[in-house]
Design a protein around this nucleic acid. Structure first.
Lengths: 230, 230
DNA sequence: ACATGTGTACTTGTTAGACAATCGATGAGT
DNA sequence: ACTCATCGATTGTCTAACAAGTACACATGT
């Protein structure tokens, strides 16, 4: 079904294609991914397919227990809140830091220009440049570990996005405007305000996502609750 | 050489034992870990050994390029700064959050009691309860992803610690006192002060670690620089 | 009819052995 | 002494196979 790919590593190539198929929605939530199934469809050996699957399990895109077949992760509203809270933790500190150095990453500027350019296109096309915008901010601090953590969160966000077909999910113009404001605040060295705006920005996106997934809205938009009982 | 272990999964068991051997210093930095070598020493098949090694590579404890043998990660001062900065990002937000809810995790209280109890023992014994203290704080927010990220950072910190034999590295009494102060600030709901104290706490530990590794000190202790050029 | 036990098919965990591709180093030639 | 080629070692991947565990359906008993 899926064509063969040639890259640095076979297991990496298979994993990449599976990733795309998951993000595209071709593989729906809770869809079972048998090792032999993957092996035959990509014409690779079962150990290779196994390694690919385990890679995606490590990334959180698939879940599986011992001796059970891997399934596409089915993320609920709680997971979405977890993911967005983690994003906020990392990114708000990053904004403070960038603002302190008055560093405006060119990649983020370009990404937001791209968002503005497709303002008339399909609403779901905004996801890629939006993620690129945020990732550019993170990468600008040059911390390998933080970048890795964030990209793992981005992968989960994209997974969530692919489960939602509501076209009214995203207000492209608003997103673009808030991104612009964030960049301006960074340039002006106003880190605290940038961090606060980011919290609202992410909180809004989170609640829209939760709503589109059928979950009920959280208590407040900009400061999510949910502290574990000790 | 290493005895066999029986657990849920063989590759997990092998990975765990390798982890311990790395943390204990038995496997020094840049030590090569051949797949066949691991396979024969644990009496497992090579694919199993391979999987264990790849697991540790994913955790950052081992490094390896394509077609090259895995080696124990050799973390330099830059890595230490990256790790501690990432810790600060996560943990400072966690402290603000815990303080807002005035939630003092019992696990952290117990961990700090343990530190106080062994105030007369070997200085390196403080590492385990110290990590437990910080991990308890993180886990208290109940965010699975943040906990996972943090534990990955803790693993790297422990790797660094095992490379350092300087016994004057840690001032147990000071650590214990600062932990106590952190808990009090949380209980009092003074999140900002807690976050600031944490920055100093981690910054001090970081610079001691860097110094013990032979690196030169960073510019300032509580607000590490190192912004990537654009 | 319902609950319970059994059994079979499917899937995963692990192993063995093998071959090609690649990396590192040693040795030969200039 | 320096460059290049050959060789050994190591990894990537495959085929084949067996053991072990899970899940579902079937049959049985109450």
């Amino acid at each position: 079904m899926a064509g063969r790919i040639a890259a640095v590593s076979i297991v990496e190539a298979v994993a990449s294609d599976l990733r795309l198929r998951i993000f595209s929605g071709e593989l729906p939530s809770a869809h079972a991914l048998t090792e032999t199934e993957v092996a035959t469809s990509y014409e690779v050996a079962r150990p290779t397919a196994k390694a690919s699957i385990e890679k995606l399990v490590a990334e959180g895109l698939l879940v599986r227990g011992v001796h059970k077949t891997a399934r596409v992760a089915d993320l609920g509203p709680e997971s979405v809140r977890d993911i967005y809270l983690a994003r906020a933790y990392l990114e708000s500190e990053v904004l403070r830091r960038l603002a302190a150095a008055r560093t405006v990453p060119t990649g983020a500027v370009q990404a937001n220009r791209d968002i503005a350019a497709l303002a008339t296109g399909a609403p779901l096309d905004v996801v890629e440049p939006d993620m690129r915008f945020h990732t550019s901010l993170i990468d600008a601090v040059g911390n390998e570990r933080i970048s890795r953590m964030y990209s793992s969160l981005v992968a989960e966000v994209r997974l969530c996005m692919s489960r939602v077909q509501s076209l009214h999910l995203l207000d492209t113009a608003l997103i673009q405007a808030e991104h612009q404001k964030l960049l301006e605040l960074i340039e002006a060295g106003r880190g605290e305000e940038a961090a606060r705006l980011l919290d609202q920005h992410l909180g809004r996106a989170r609640e829209r996502l939760v709503a589109a997934m059928g979950g009920e809205a959280g208590p407040e938009a900009d400061l999510p609750s949910g502290l574990a009982n000790q």
